[in-house]
Design a protein around this nucleic acid. Structure first.
Lengths: 114, 114
DNA sequence: CCGGCGTTATGATTGCTCTTCATAACGGAG
DNA sequence: CTCCGTTATGAAGAGCAATCATAACGCCGG
């Protein structure tokens, strides 16, 4: 047996934020485009774009500022709200992971892997 | 925006335990049959049976003792391991919910509903 | 002795969500 | 004014999960 746990935040019954989605935003910001961020996360562009679109809709805020055409073909950067969201989300995930891991090992008498 | 969270335990990358599944086992025990438990949880018998089967396989333990035929047609009861699992799982879910709720409100500055 | 009933157990099918493939639009550079 | 890499989105396909349908079991009443 290999116990694990997962965690996300919902808005209106649908996933609005999770660690994976936060990492996606982070990767997009780091590489300057949705395409490169998607490649790093190992998913097709369509998926990455759709997740971002969902997040913006469900969180009710604009996360990315995108630009089409131009010398480099375009690109994407996090908005101020987006950077704020990523920061809070990273803190939330890290703290929650630690807390749950502790409760898990106290309850089940063995520490969860990873 | 209506923030929520969810939480489960995985075994081998697949869901092995969650609050819903724990409530299902609890309902089966309370009513004495998978059929009645499934009805209470609002799912068809097949779904309930499948979830239980999955849980037993992924946790590597027998949770239910079932009986087919007989005066009442049959029934199901939790094994000792099953009762133990339900108890630990309920404690884990309750403690984790409290902890995550607290971390959430500290991080995002508002308390999650429910 | 045997047909009926409520249950467990499982095969087969449907439906739906998510992934993937394909295409349009943009705009600076050569 | 054509080319390139990007954003943006429509449409088709696949995979998975819920649902429907059926077999087997075993006591009980007739």
């Amino acid at each position: 047996m290999e116990p694990r746990f997962n965690l996300w935040i919902e808005a209106g019954g649908e996933v609005a934020a999770s660690r994976w989605r936060m990492e996606l935003l982070s990767a997009i910001e780091e590489h300057g485009s949705i395409t490169a961020g998607a490649r790093e996360m190992g998913v097709p562009y369509r998926v990455a774009w759709q997740k971002v679109h969902e997040m913006e809709e469900r969180l009710g805020m604009q996360l990315l500022e995108t630009q089409t055409g131009g010398a480099e073909g375009g690109g994407a950067r996090l908005t101020e709200a987006g950077r704020e969201h990523v920061g809070r989300m990273r803190a939330f995930c890290d703290r929650a992971d630690r807390a749950i891991r502790e409760i898990y090992s106290e309850t089940f008498g063995q520490s969860p892997p990873d």
